[in-house]
Design a protein around this nucleic acid. Sequence first.
DNA 1: GTCTATATTCGGATAGAC
DNA 2: GTCTATCCGAATATAGAC
Lengths: 193, 193
Amino acid sequence: MATGTRDRIIDAALALFAERGVAAVPVTAIEAAAGLAAGSGAFYRHFRNKTELVDALVDRELTRARDRVPPARDEADGNATEVLTTRLRGDLDFLRELGPLIHILVWERGRNPELVERLRSTVFEASIESGMAEVLSLAPTQAVQEDPEAAAQVMLSAMVGFFLAEEYYGRPAGPVSADRFARALAALLTSEP
Amino acid sequence: MATGTRDRIIDAALALFAERGVAAVPVTAIEAAAGLAAGSGAFYRHFRNKTELVDALVDRELTRARDRVPPARDEADGNATEVLTTRLRGDLDFLRELGPLIHILVWERGRNPELVERLRSTVFEASIESGMAEVLSLAPTQAVQEDPEAAAQVMLSAMVGFFLAEEYYGRPAGPVSADRFARALAALLTSEP
DNA sequence: GTCTATATTCGGATAGAC
DNA sequence: GTCTATCCGAATATAGAC
């Protein structure tokens, strides 16, 4: 049950941090959400302090993100635009899974630079790289081939921007649904002169 | 000098909030940064409390953003891709000016829903609308014409995503500079089948 | 309007019983 | 491992002199 409590604390903290921010969540609130008595020091039997909890939490979630199996691709359907649209929708779902971690990054930036750097090098650079391969194989248009790396970053940036707008404003932020958005982005990437 | 101090407090708070987050900045630090004695209650002669300061600050910055004169356009140079590239670089500079306000939005979300809604309806919707007009006049390609609203949101999302990556990771986040990014996005939007 | 000083509340963290 | 009780430091906010 010892390890069980530790994980329950991490789960509770993840939800609270994503919602309110790390600094704004007192340890007492974490204890309460984890089923411990608020104000008892029970938390401190599992973590030296709040900082150590954040580190452990990020470790766990980053590992989960890395080990996530990409969903199987239906390679055999439709034209390039359709295939890319489907992939982009899947990527948006992945971003949503990553959401809490992203929010914590946002709140911890400045206070925890090496956390930020880990996320950047682990997730961001890998996304650019795989995005570049994806876009080159599915949308080898002239605009893409001129600078595939930049095209991949446009794709990634658009996805992240849309996701964040959806998260920070009540969803949907604008008149465009996730479906329409993915389709428009795919169409732009695959439109051949 | 009374109003002068009030504005100095807002200036100081804007910088501190953008850097560390609202919750993490004590009133004493704002006083110090505004040239008042830290720990003196001098702050409270100008604002009832920190919440009221945040409201006043957002009011001021939102008004500034609304009243900002868009930089004059050199209408007469180059092809559509070049013109759009230049515009996008200008928009990125505008986003950088808006940066502190965006960071505060990010930190206050959840604690201050009507602030978020004001920013969404004031800035976000206006950006979609003007972006749609822009993209239709400069890049009336087939992909854009099929769903101009979605294309505008792709453009806006990509800009915001790039800007945030630049801000939250040390700049530049990836191997792609702002110039390369703007050019690639413009090329994608204007590439005609 | 700004200062010194202070009352108060709250969050972080520890001690020791069970 | 979790509880009750408690200490300490930091942050909000006020009182009253200048």
